[in-house]
Simulated scan of single mutants.
Amino acid sequence: MLWLGHFLWPFLRITGLFLTAPLYGSSMIPSTIKALLAAAFAAALAMWLPNLPPFPGNPFSAIYTGITQIAFGALMGMTMHIVIAAIACAGEIAGLAMGLSFAELQFREAGGPTPVLYDIMLWAGLLGFMAAGGPVWIFAALAHSFAHGVGVAPLSSWGDLAGLGGTLFSAALGLALPVVAVSLCVNLTVGLTTIFAPSINLLSIGFPLLILAGLWVMAASIPAIGPAAEHLTTTGMDALGVLLAHG
């Protein structure tokens, strides 16, 4: 029971992490590979982590503790998923502002068709998250969460994560703000032009101009994705630090 507990508790928490975490929870990774990785990571942690309790003989206690471990690991992964979601949401806001939201793709990571700019920014956010060391940090936080056994943070700390929803929308709007501002200026300019020259076709002139200006500004703002991803990753790691049982 002691050896089983040393392996099973990390395995359950890693399984929950693989359900929601960026990169680890990608649907492009086969489930068999995920299971093997979770077992390998759990075996490594079992030989390194001290003071893990044995597997309880009471089945009700074992089921409750197991569900708690899976839920806690999934919550840790969801916390870091906000980093990717914020950058991807910026692409969707930019697409809506420039009138390019009608262009959609069937992306494997999504349940249905998603805007093209959403997919592009999703990949940019994932690459920025990996460049900032996010996958390594989140696994280090998971290993550090066992410093005081299999205990989890109190529910009040879990509730603090609701504030990250505001971070998601504020960061997304901040990244998409140049495109939104330029789109507003183009719409105002084309609207005033059609008042003084009613013969100008609004769709044939304004629509292509709006898309081209939006794409140009979005391409010019690509260097800002790296620092934004690094800042969001740091914010997510601070939120993970609140979730740790010891702090």
Rank of each mutant, 00 (worst) to 15 (best):
L188W: 09
A228Y: 03
F207S: 10
G214D: 02
L168D: 03
P198K: 01
L12E: 07
V242D: 08
C89D: 04
S157F: 13
G111M: 13
A229P: 04
A162P: 02
M1Q: 12
A239E: 00
G151Q: 08
H144I: 04
E92F: 11
G236Q: 06
M47K: 03
L240Q: 08
I205F: 15
M80S: 04
L37Q: 05
A162N: 01
I222Y: 13
V242I: 11
L17S: 00
V242G: 07
D160R: 14
S221F: 13
Q69Y: 00
W137Y: 05
M237T: 07
S199F: 01
H231Y: 01
A103K: 02
W123F: 14
A21Q: 07
P154D: 15
M28R: 12
P54N: 06
L203R: 07
T189E: 07
I222P: 01
A40D: 08
V217Q: 06
I33M: 11
P198H: 00
A94D: 08
V152N: 04
A46Y: 01
A162C: 10
W9D: 02
I205H: 07
L155Y: 04
P50Q: 10
M98I: 03
L243C: 00
P56G: 03
F7H: 05
N58T: 05
P135Y: 05
H6W: 03
M98E: 07
A224C: 04
Q106K: 06
G111A: 14
A46E: 04
H148F: 08
V83C: 04
S221A: 15
G134T: 00
I211F: 02
L142G: 09
A176Y: 11
A213K: 10
L36R: 07
Q106Y: 05
F139K: 02
Y118I: 02
C89Q: 13
M28A: 13
Q106H: 08
G165N: 09
I211P: 00
G66V: 01
T193S: 11
I33W: 05
A176M: 12
S157W: 12
P208I: 11
M121G: 07
F102A: 09
V152S: 03
L243Y: 09
G73D: 11
Q106P: 00
S27Q: 11
L168S: 01
A21T: 04
S101L: 09
I195R: 14
V190T: 10
H231M: 12
